[in-house]
């Protein structure tokens, strides 16, 4: 952690000095301190916080649908005979596709309001959780732990909650970490073109109005959100792996 902070400080100091001595153009590369000051101003005085709220709302709603759907399907394909043979090729075929490529189609189907954005974000989150969890459940079903389930005959609730979900918590958290970070990317991309709120909209509008420092503030907010996700999920993964054999 100390090394991470030190390297970040070194990078930012260099940047600050380069701006100070006008070695790089401060209009295109504003000094870090100016960006931080501007971001605080935008959060308190302007409506950047509202934009963050709109983006988080989209991410939250998409997660609310995508996470349970991914968990349900991952459990289904690993438990219903032959279902994996049908589902897995479809996943393998559609997963490498950049999800942004299907956005125009979603706009056509769901219209330009929030639904199309939420569906796009949801699809992105779904794949990463589903793929990780499916592998985790398969690992679990091939382990000696599954013999214990068969011997001691767990109730259905205990089987799903205490065996499957808690037993695959490492894969599930990894899926959530990757899925939500990718979801955040899709939030921004979907807000670039067909939105009148959200961080993506804020960044795009700032660029349009040539308020470059605001673009940087938008990016800073996204970085902080990304870092918060990273920190939360990494802590959870470390805690979980501490208990496993």
């Amino acid at each position: 952690m100390k090394k991470t902070i030190a390297s970040m400080l070194f990078f930012l100091t260099c940047w600050q000095l380069l701006c100070h001595f006008i070695i790089i153009d401060p209009v295109f590369f504003p000094a870090p301190l100016s960006i931080i000051k501007n971001t605080f101003f935008l959060l308190i005085q302007d409506n950047l916080l509202v934009q963050v709220f709109y983006s988080m709302k989209r991410l939250g709603l998409a997660s609310l649908v995508a996470i349970p759907a991914a968990i349900f399907l991952a459990i289904a394909v690993t438990h219903v005979k032959n279902l994996d043979n049908y589902i897995n090729p479809v996943i393998a075929f559609t997963f490498p596709l950049p999800k942004v490529a299907i956005y125009p189609l979603l706009l056509l189907i769901f219209g330009i309001d929030d639904t199309s954005k939420i569906v796009l974000i949801g699809i992105g989150i779904f794949y990463l959780i589903f793929i990780n969890l499916r592998i985790g459940i398969k690992r679990l079903l091939n382990s000696q732990s599954y013999d214990l389930v068969r011997i001691y005959k767990l109730t259905r609730f205990d089987y799903i909650w205490n065996f499957i979900l808690k037993g695959t918590q490492q894969e599930l958290i990894t899926g959530l970490k990757l899925g939500l970070n990718y979801g955040l990317t899709l939030v921004v991309v979907s807000e670039f073109s067909t939105s009148n709120n959200g961080i993506g909209y804020f960044i795009w509008r700032s660029w349009d109005q040539f308020k470059i420092i605001n673009v940087y503030s938008g990016i800073l907010i996204l970085s902080i959100l990304g870092f918060v996700f990273y920190f939360i999920f990494n802590t959870l993964i470390e805690r979980a792996s501490d208990r496993f054999y």
Binding site: Q144, S145, D147, L148, I151, K166, G167, R243, F244, Y245
Partner: peptide, 12 residues
């Protein structure tokens, strides 16, 4: 009931 060779618990 079955007693396995090694520690066989749900480690989580």
């Amino acid at each position: 009931s079955y007693v396995f060779q090694n520690n066989s618990f749900f480690s989580w």
